[in-house]
């Protein structure tokens, strides 16, 4: 097999919490949010690598760190770059080189409201990277932008080109964000919940579009979603995250057919089935997880219905249970 396009190695991203005056006077040390805590995985060229997990588990932070938008606390992000014609470590790259790399690495943000510039016409917003990277201006830029707008379903483009973000609904704005991410012909795209604002009939078409672009442009996606059902439908492999850690990783079919981690099973149970009535009963949620501070034992222990005594004391390692299927749970560690 060829070398992966991306190798994430022992990646950490901690955020320091504000210390109150009382904390300082009492000499309490700074508390950290361990948003991403020692995460390692590979992404193969032209695959769709899914990251699934609940709100606040660190998906967006991980996505931002791996394309160099945020500096990691520690760890390496080895990326096989075309522009540099070698493998570079995004974690230690200089700002100037990172800017160059931006052409290859793009992100589609979760929140289209904060991603857009409210004072910029959306056509100019989509085409802005073309100007920054001195690829096209004026009429030529307009033409490239119109094409990409058509591709993402902003049809007819001339009707939308001169609009401002506030004149679009949420879903239309998300398409603008997708268009901008595509305009520089990137190689790797972190898609951070790119369809969570769209209805399923449009989601299906956007996904179809992303799949076609993946084939045509040889793209690789890191696809972040809270929907394990969606991830199952489109991803080659899935990593399940919990409180900054990967707790399960494997091929999409094996994750869904044989979920090994109690948390993965919880995620699957809570998928709403459109074909039957009612909201699934989820009991595990009573204890809210907090990513602040130090952990002992398994991070899921407070919500785990299958916990053992050992789980409180010691964190299980990530072990390979079958080929390519990893889980971090004592139930699967052979003595």
């Amino acid at each position: 097999m060829s070398e992966p396009i991306l190798q994430v190695i022992n990646l950490k991203k901690y955020f320091a919490l504000e210390r109150s005056i009382a904390d300082r006077l009492l000499g309490r040390s700074r508390a950290y949010v361990k948003a991403v805590d020692d995460v390692s995985f590979d992404v193969n060229e032209n695959e769709i690598f899914g990251i699934v997990g609940e709100s606040g588990c660190g998906k967006s932070t991980l996505g931002r760190v791996i394309i160099g938008l945020l500096k990691p606390t520690s760890g390496r992000i080895l990326y096989k770059s075309k522009i540099f014609n070698r493998t570079v470590d995004i974690a230690s790259l200089k700002e100037k080189d990172l800017r160059l790399l931006r052409r290859e690495l793009q992100i589609i943000f979760q929140d289209p409201y904060s991603a857009l510039n409210p004072k910029m016409k959306i056509g100019d917003f989509i085409g802005h990277p073309l100007e920054i990277h001195k690829i096209a201006t004026g009429e030529e830029k307009r033409e490239i932008v119109m094409k990409i707008m058509e591709k993402v379903g902003l049809i007819p483009p001339e009707e939308y080109y001169d609009r401002y973000p506030r004149e679009l609904s949420g879903g239309q704005r998300q398409r603008v964000v997708i268009a901008r991410a595509l305009i520089l012909n990137p190689r790797l795209i972190v898609a951070d919940e790119p369809t969570s604002n769209l209805d399923v009939s449009i989601q299906a078409r956007i996904i179809a579009l992303l799949l076609r672009l993946k084939d045509e442009m040889k793209l690789t996606y890191v696809f972040i979603t809270h929907s394990i059902a969606l991830a199952h439908n489109i991803c080659d492999r899935i990593a399940v995250m919990y409180l900054g850690r990967i707790v399960e990783l494997g091929g999409a079919p094996s994750i869904v057919d044989e979920p090994l981690h109690p948390y993965t099973r919880l995620l699957m149970r809570s998928v709403i089935d459109p074909d039957t009535r009612n909201i699934p009963r989820v009991r595990e949620v009573s204890e809210p997880p907090s990513p602040v501070g130090d952990f002992r034992g398994c991070r899921f222990v407070r919500r785990c219905p299958e916990k053992m005594e050992k789980c409180e004391r010691e964190e299980p390692p990530l072990v390979e249970v079958s080929t390519g299927h990893y889980v971090r749970c004592w139930q699967h560690v052979k003595r």
Binding site: V200, A204, A208, M268, P274
Partner: peptide, 26 residues
């Protein structure tokens, strides 16, 4: 009907590519 058909389910994988040709016009 179209909405119900496009919902991603855990039971089977949807073939998204067949939707590409369908109009997403206003």
């Amino acid at each position: 009907q179209m909405l119900l058909e496009c919902i991603p389910r855990l039971r089977q994988r949807l073939d998204f590519r067949r939707f590409e040709k369908e109009s997403i016009e206003l």
